[in-house]
Design a protein around this nucleic acid. Structure first.
Lengths: 248, 248
DNA sequence: CGCAGAATTGATACATCTCAAGCTGGGTGG
DNA sequence: CCACCCAGCTTGAGATGTATCAATTCTGCG
């Protein structure tokens, strides 16, 4: 079933894990009933391309579980990630025919999909969805702008530290981590994906991670498992204002 | 009056130059009447800071005329522009207390302002505004993502060509330019502002502009007046797919 | 166990930054 | 009316951070 991406199960909205954060989070029960009727799930396997840039895109979706990336690819192969989709994030743009970027599953991923036409109809008739989508889009725009600072002005070391801080912070807010500045998480990205995120080569990513490890800013087991002994220290390495509460 | 930014005149919405493109573009007459009652104008002079990052921001606004920039500044002075506000663009974020970036007037500029509270009320009660703001925010997000590709993966020469193409295209769509691939416009930014836009130093900007001039891709009179003899050629220099219709 | 993808490490090349010196044009005051 | 001034810009020479090319070495998994 992985090839078609069609999933067998149909979870009720009321027991959906992203119920309180996704584009539907402000919906009343009657609105959820409508969504429940028209939604459908699709699963993708790691590495699988969900949408190709330029392809017609006849659906929009929420990420239920898993991770996906949005990226531009230039003709000569240079690639820049421009979005990272985590659970509850929204994929697709109402009022647009074709996808502007490649969307690729980084992990096993499940999407909650709506055909574009019906969703656009809902958007017009359901203020709670329109307002939530506006809020989510504004948040994404903020994230994109912080990302632009990283891409345009930070050194390779600061870029790596920034990415680790972003991932660590998100994990902390999800997993109710220890509040004592210690932080443990798994990287959801390969070195190459990190390079695409940060506008670096994978070699430079590797070197800078090694350097941060040498300097005691982080510890690593295996390739993915990261321990940050002192989050504040990591923040200092990002070049940002050192305000640094875990949930910022 | 430039110091307070308060403008003397009060233009009726129905005869406003950005009537058909701004956040209010989908409003009916009765909705415009409401806006007309609560809006107020503010003027700023070139170089004047409209909002400082971190300051409380008690208003939102549409740019009526002129140009402003949004930018992050790091503690050590590194600066990255993250937004360029042109006429009809929207400034401010409903539901946020403090400004995340500096907003600086690049030219003489006039804003059509609304106090934040009343505007948020309107947003809740007026779907036409909410929907238009969503659409505009999605457009900005797309622009931010294209910008991320420029920042992360393009060479200095490609960055300059991309910026010239962006400015040229916009001017072409406004001024109904000659359709024969020739293009003439004025740069709205200094070399330093271009550098902040592109994540370069101003020296590199200057060198690359000189190089493009040497290679016949552009001609320059004075410091700002640019002629592009062959727009397609410029597009080839951006590194993007060479689709290149003027209005893309 | 062994293999393939992922990651590390090294040597070198090169694009862009940095520091420094001069140029240019428009505005101002003597 | 001219000389000066200064912000904005250009150009040069050298330093430096990151990319590139090229081996190895890990790590997780069948």
């Amino acid at each position: 079933m992985a090839d078609t991406g069609l999933a067998e199960v149909h979870v009720k909205c009321s027991s959906c894990p992203i119920r309180h954060r996704a584009v539907c989070s402000r919906c009343e029960q009657d609105e959820l009933d409508v969504l429940d009727r028209i939604k459908y799930y699709r699963d993708f396997t790691p590495g699988q391309t969900i949408v190709w840039a330029g392809d017609e895109m006849d659906f929009v979706a929420s990420v239920v579980t898993g991770i996906a990336t949005l990226s531009h690819t230039m003709e000569d192969g240079r690639r820049q990630m421009v979005g990272l989709l985590l659970p509850s994030d929204f994929l697709g743009r109402p009022g647009r025919e074709t996808a502007p970027y490649d969307v690729v599953a980084t992990s096993k991923i499940t999407l909650c999909c709506f055909r574009k036409g019906p969703f656009e109809e809902l958007l017009r008739s359901t203020p709670s969805i329109n307002q939530r989508l506006l809020e989510m889009t504004l948040d994404e725009l903020d994230a994109a702008r912080e990302w632009m600072l990283i891409l345009g002005r930070k050194t390779a070391r600061e870029k790596i530290a920034s990415l680790l801080a972003i991932i660590g912070r998100r994990d902390a807010s999800l997993n109710m981590s220890t509040a004592d500045g210690r932080l443990v998480f798994d990287l959801p990205l390969t070195r190459e994906a990190m390079a695409d995120y940060l506008g670096l080569t994978l070699e430079t990513v590797s070197r800078q991670i090694s350097a941060l490890k040498r300097d005691g800013v982080i510890q690593i087991e295996g390739n993915r498992h990261v321990t940050v002994p002192d989050f504040q220290r990591l923040i200092e390495e990002t070049g940002d204002d050192t305000d640094g509460g875990l949930i910022a």
